[in-house]
Simulated scan of single mutants.
Amino acid sequence: MLDTWNHNNYFRRMKPTLLILAAGMASRYGSMKQVDGFGPNNETIIDYSIYDAVRAGFGKVCFIIREEFLESFKGIFEPKLKGVVETDYIFQTFDLTKYGIDKQIERQKPWGTGHAVLEAAGKVNEPFCVINADDFYGYDAFKKMADFLTNEVSDEKYSLIGYEVDKTLSEHGAVSRGICLVNSEGNLQEINERTKVYAKDGVIVFEDESGKTTPLHDDARASMNFWGFTPAVFEQTKPLFKAFVEENESNPKAEFFIPLMAEALTKSGTAVFKVIPTSSKWFGVTYKEDKPIVQESLSKLVEDGTYPSKLWK
């Protein structure tokens, strides 16, 4: 067993891995939005994330997918990424035996984002970050995460990217956002889910069930599911997932989300989560109606020179 200094120094010599959560069925979108084209040459949102990650210093990309998606993903991404970055594919399945659960639980979909991360155990052996397939995060976020995973991360110190709330809003109504409560050391204390966040008279507010609005602090940060870990997180959270499944085996909609992992690790003192602020603008796609908005946003980024007109030449 490596001592702590050698263990962390070992991580410093490794390029981090990008873990992309892409196993969802995208029921609200109506098709597989993970591989839908949004860029001027039909690039997916994932293409832009990988492009930024490679520039930022990531050395490998792992896709968390359903097994039936494999040939589709390989057909889309392997021709582009061959010789650019190492790729791998990890399946999110319904098999719970690896978590010490010897029963079959019938569900229509797997157990959520936290479960998806755990499926990478034994396959990701270096510091890594986790992102959604259908979210655009921006280069600044990837660069800051890469720097953290190269220089600061340890088995007791993880991270998440904190977005300026106004850079995550929609022009078409209120949004749900996980608002980070950050302590004086810059570490996460808790994430509060605010279901109705929007701009009102130039101020960002959230609205409760009674209709009362409360302003958010100017420096409030939103979590958009962009997390940094070491492989130690697999063993740290495996018991949490097992307990969650046992408590929710009769609830087909229960999901083990990454923020539940973070909350448990923080409260137990197992690890702290540094909230890394970014100036990047986030945008994502949930419904078909979002597609032209995302296309327009990417077109503007190409026009201003942030990205080339053709990502993979």
Rank of each mutant, 00 (worst) to 15 (best):
F283R: 00
W282Q: 02
A271L: 04
F256N: 11
T237A: 15
A232F: 07
Y29L: 00
N225Y: 10
E207K: 13
N251H: 12
S49N: 12
N6E: 14
A53R: 07
L19P: 06
I46E: 05
A53N: 00
Q92F: 14
V165H: 06
F244Y: 14
F128T: 04
P259E: 07
M261H: 01
N9T: 10
S31D: 08
N6G: 11
L18I: 08
Y10E: 10
F38D: 00
Y158F: 15
G59V: 09
Y139L: 15
G173A: 01
Y307F: 12
K242H: 10
D219P: 10
S170P: 01
C62A: 09
N151L: 10
E246P: 10
A264Y: 13
P231F: 05
W111Q: 07
G228C: 00
Q295C: 12
K291Q: 13
C129E: 12
F77W: 04
I76C: 10
T168M: 07
H172V: 00
V124Q: 01
K288C: 02
D95G: 11
I64D: 04
T270S: 14
S31R: 10
I105K: 03
A271E: 03
V182Q: 05
N187R: 09
V35Y: 01
T168C: 13
F273W: 03
N132Y: 07
L188V: 09
L118R: 01
S154E: 08
F241P: 11
K33A: 12
A254W: 14
